[in-house]
């Protein structure tokens, strides 16, 4: 019998993507994701190890930093999420980070647990404002800003990746369909699509 293989499937089945100048949704289903949780009192060692391996300083405040194709997203005190594209070599961030942080932090694969969507467009702030009760104005939320919050009763982590602005939003995978329902309905007045 042939070895069974697992194929990654999008958590946003049925929507996939929406392209409109006012609002664009891109389904990021080819990500590898891992959480990094510092062992008690070892936060400084975790930061030093990541600095050595990837040349980036893990933030203590709600920020995103990038190095070697990985985005490190602040995820609460002494915690971060590492996100990268799996690419053609099927990169596995958990396998990559575990030896780097051995004895310093818990590194746990979140690729099956989280879904991430990328949104942009001329009305992106108007759409997100219907659910996110945080200030997304550029004076308050900039490129590489991060917020852990909720939208439409769904726990989300949102971060901004460029000044367009383009945002990425992560949520628990089982809420992806519900979140996409809210997102497309909120965008309908700008895109004309439900």
């Amino acid at each position: 019998m042939a070895n069974p293989t697992l194929a990654a499937k999008s958590a946003f089945l049925g929507v996939q993507s929406l392209k409109h100048p006012a609002f664009t949704i891109e389904d990021l289903s080819s990500l590898t994701i891992a959480s990094i949780t510092s062992a008690k009192g070892k936060s400084a060692e975790v930061k030093a190890a990541i600095q050595t391996a990837y040349g980036v300083a893990l933030p203590d405040t709600p920020l995103r930093v990038t190095g070697n194709g990985i985005a490190f997203i602040w995820h609460g005190p002494d915690q971060w999420m590492a996100i990268a594209d799996r690419g053609t070599n099927n990169r596995d961030i958990e396998v990559e980070l575990k030896p780097v942080l051995e004895g310093k932090a818990a590194v746990v694969d979140q690729g099956d647990g989280r879904a991430v969507v990328r949104v942009s467009g001329t009305h992106v702030r108007d759409v997100l404002a219907k659910g996110f009760a945080i200030d997304l104005h550029p004076s308050a939320f900039k490129t590489n800003s991060v917020a852990i919050t909720h939208a439409a009763h769904i726990g989300c982590i949102i971060w901004q990746i460029d000044a367009a602005p383009t945002y990425e939003i992560a949520m628990f995978r089982s809420f992806a369909d519900s979140f996409m329902d809210w997102l497309t309905h909120s965008a309908a007045e700008y895109t004309g699509r439900h």
């Binding site: 405040t61 709600p62 609460g76 009760a133 945080i134 852990i148 919050t149």
Partner: peptide
């Protein structure tokens, strides 16, 4: 202290 000003429903 971490996240800034947030609405009551987050707490």
């Amino acid at each position: 202290p971490c996240c800034g000003e947030r609405a009551l429903d987050e707490f």
